[in-house]
């Protein structure tokens, strides 16, 4: 659930999503759900000429299972807080495992 919460803090920021088929889509993050499905608004496709099917598309719903990377704006990420949260989550998970 940690990364779900993390992505929620990035709502309304501009991100670039790279899919497993190498297409890169930049847009404003509008929504995310428990599967890390992502919704982007005002999209712009990198190397647009290679992906003609995207030319008339203005916003997309991307299935979480096909995402390879999400490029984030560095200034929107509170790194110490994320580190902290990650450790806490890991500790919780370890506690549950026992």
């Amino acid at each position: 659930m940690l990364f779900f919460s993390f992505f929620k803090t990035l709502i309304d920021h501009e991100v670039t999503v790279e899919l497993k088929n190498d297409i890169q889509i930049r847009g404003v993050l509008k929504s995310v759900d428990q599967y890390l499905n992502i919704k982007l608004d005002n999209i712009q496709v990198l190397e647009e000429i290679k992906y003609p099917h995207m030319s008339a598309v203005k916003n997309v719903f991307i299935r979480g299972s096909v995402v390879r990377y999400v490029h984030l704006p560095a200034n929107a990420v509170d790194v110490p807080l994320l580190e902290d949260a990650t450790r806490r989550e890991a500790a919780n998970q370890a506690g549950k495992g026992k």
Binding site: L19, S55, A56, V57, V60, F61, R63
Partner: peptide, 14 residues
Amino acid sequence: VLLLGEIDLDKEDD
């Protein structure tokens, strides 16, 4: 499904 995109109706016939 890879992705769903809403089509901009102004551009759909281009």
